[in-house]
């Protein structure tokens, strides 16, 4: 394994807090949520594993010398969503497997060979386009699927994910492409999430007055 300090980009003299901060920044960067259904998800999860191991190695070696704390984040590897909810047709299960294996051309060919188009067909076609990077068409297909079967959670989630503009890592101060409107929505979402968190006893946005 590489030197754990260089994996986290800190010097061996760094304090525990500095190491924790470096680890958290990197964990935020390679978080599986940023690679939702992304062809590079495997590389991101490798990176995640690498920094997890580095952080564990450092805390372990420091614990032996006293102090230190165990890693507070524990991310799994970014799994794929396509196994879960396939309905009846065995063809669809096969197509989902093809999409998972990034074999998009064959998945598309199989979909095109199917004559009747139900909601799942539109959803899977949307998934193929999504992986290809054809975001506009993917959105249209996802929306059609969700309109045909409004109660299906999988289709609804896909539409919602797109409407939010997805998710990606940005460094502090980094901007998005949606302009002020979306930034506003993001704040609203954050405040909403904070309220939910507080109901459950957590706190996402710490209250300045409470300190």
């Amino acid at each position: 394994m590489n030197d754990p300090y260089s994996v986290l980009g800190v010097s061996p003299q760094a304090s525990d807090d500095e190491i924790k901060k470096a680890y958290r920044d990197l964990a935020r960067k390679y978080h599986p949520d940023n690679y939702h259904d992304n062809p590079l998800a495997d590389l991101a999860s490798e990176k995640m594993k690498e920094i997890n191991e580095a952080y564990d190695a450092i805390t372990k070696s420091r614990e032996q010398g006293g102090g230190g704390s165990a890693r507070s984040y524990s991310y799994g590897t970014g799994g794929s969503a396509y196994q879960s909810q396939s309905s009846g047709r065995s063809q669809y299960i096969q197509i989902r497997n093809l999409i998972n294996a990034n074999n998009l051309a064959q998945a598309e060919a199989m979909l095109n060979a199917i004559g009747t188009h139900d909601a799942e067909w539109y959803y899977l076609m949307g998934s193929v386009y999504w992986r290809k990077g054809w975001m506009d068409q993917a959105g249209q297909y996802f929306r059609t699927a969700a309109t045909m079967e409004p109660n299906n959670v999988e289709y609804r989630n896909a539409v919602q994910y797109m409407n939010q503009g997805g998710q990606a890592y940005r460094p502090a101060g980094g901007m998005g492409m949606m302009g002020s409107d979306a930034a506003c929505n993001m704040c609203q979402n954050l405040i909403c999430a904070d309220c939910c968190c507080e109901m459950l006893g957590g706190n996402l946005i710490p209250c300045i007055g409470c300190r």
């Binding site: 990077g133 975001m135 503009g165 998005g176 492409m177 949606m178």
Partner: peptide, 8 residues
Amino acid sequence: ESLQLSHN
């Protein structure tokens, strides 16, 4: 939105 997804 489409540009944002590509940017992501």
